[in-house]
Simulated scan of single mutants.
Amino acid sequence: MLHIGCHLTTTKGLAAMGRQALALGGDTLQFFTRNPRGAKAKAIDHQDAANLMSLLENHHFVPIIAHAPYIMNLCADTEEKREFAQSILADDLVRMTHFPNQLYNFHPGSHVGQGVEAGIDYIAEALNQTLTPETSVTVLLETMAGKGTEIGGRFEELRAIIDRVDLNEKMGVCLDTCHVWDGGYDLVDNLDGVLAEFDAIIGLERLKAIHLNDSLNPNCSHKDRHACIGAGHIGLEAMERIVNHPALKNLPFCLETPNDLDGYAKEIGVLRDLTEGNL
């Protein structure tokens, strides 16, 4: 069975967000922990969070994804900026105690000229200072498109971060189809090869979620511009192979396509129709 949802907002409350996911035909979802381009976070309503967790259990959701804000750059070029980013990470992981056994995803960051190795060291250092044995979620590094000085455009960079994290049993990876395509991995003509490479470098057991997005750009463009499913260079046939691949089909898939709610509902329906066992 395909486990799929989309990115939703929390303006009407957490439980309302879960009900919206259900109405769209989803059994997972993603939400930002706070304003994606700001530092402020709305206080969590404990009862609302409990209501969401009850809804997830009652409707047999697979793990949901909380997404860190884009401004959280753990490998920024000043100590002040890095400390600011780490404070967001630490606060988010405290907030995630309301959502045990779920997923927390973040963009590894941009080294802004310091070099990949320095950036990897800074990211791992922040994780080592923040993760504890009591951390209640799996923390995901997202695959990136490799634009500018982004870290995470190659599987080897994510593995290097994980290897430097002391409590790396808390770590996993979220594979974004648009990002890896734009980063140079050929999901269209060599899906098996890409997944074999991921397994050899990182290990498929660390792959915990998929961001399912088409791309406005050709392979290896390093641009990171999402397209609706079937409307980009990856295409619907490749998406069908992705959602049906035996190494992926039990993972939570989350749409981040440029859509309104009706568009998300349509895409979820199309993808379910393409999935083996749902025909």
Rank of each mutant, 00 (worst) to 15 (best):
M1W: 05
H7K: 12
T9F: 10
T9S: 15
K12Y: 12
A16T: 00
R19C: 00
A21V: 02
L22A: 07
D27W: 06
Q30P: 03
T33I: 14
N35A: 13
N35Y: 11
P36V: 05
P36E: 11
P36H: 11
K42E: 14
K42I: 08
I44Q: 05
I44P: 05
I44T: 12
H46G: 13
A50D: 15
E57H: 11
E57Y: 10
E57R: 12
N58Q: 15
N58L: 13
H59P: 05
I64C: 15
H67C: 10
Y70H: 01
M72I: 07
L74C: 03
L74T: 03
L74R: 01
A76V: 02
E79K: 13
E79Q: 14
E80D: 08
K81G: 07
E83M: 12
F84Q: 09
Q86C: 07
A90C: 10
D91K: 14
R95C: 10
P100K: 05
P100E: 11
N105M: 11
G109K: 04
H111G: 12
G113Y: 07
G115W: 11
E117A: 14
Y122L: 12
Y122I: 02
N128Q: 06
N128M: 05
T130A: 08
L131N: 09
P133C: 13
T135L: 12
V137K: 09
V137M: 10
E142K: 03
T143F: 08
M144Y: 02
A145E: 02
A145K: 01
G146T: 01
K147E: 13
G148N: 13
G153W: 06
R154W: 01
L158N: 01
K170Y: 09
H179C: 02
V188C: 02
V188N: 02
D192P: 06
V194F: 07
V194K: 01
A196K: 06
D199S: 01
E205I: 03
E205M: 04
L207D: 06
A209Q: 08
H211F: 08
N213Y: 02
S215F: 04
S215V: 03
S215K: 01
L216G: 01
L216R: 14
P218Q: 04
N219M: 14
S221E: 08
H222N: 12
D224Q: 00
D224K: 01
I229A: 01
I234H: 04
L236W: 01
A238F: 06
V243Q: 07
V243H: 09
N244R: 09
P246F: 06
P246K: 01
A247G: 00
A247C: 10
L248Y: 04
N250P: 00
P252G: 13
E256A: 04
E256P: 05
T257Q: 10
T257N: 08
P258I: 04
P258A: 10
N259E: 14
D262M: 04
D262C: 00
G263C: 05
G263T: 02
A265I: 02
K266V: 07
G269I: 03
L274G: 08
E276G: 00
G277I: 04
N278F: 15
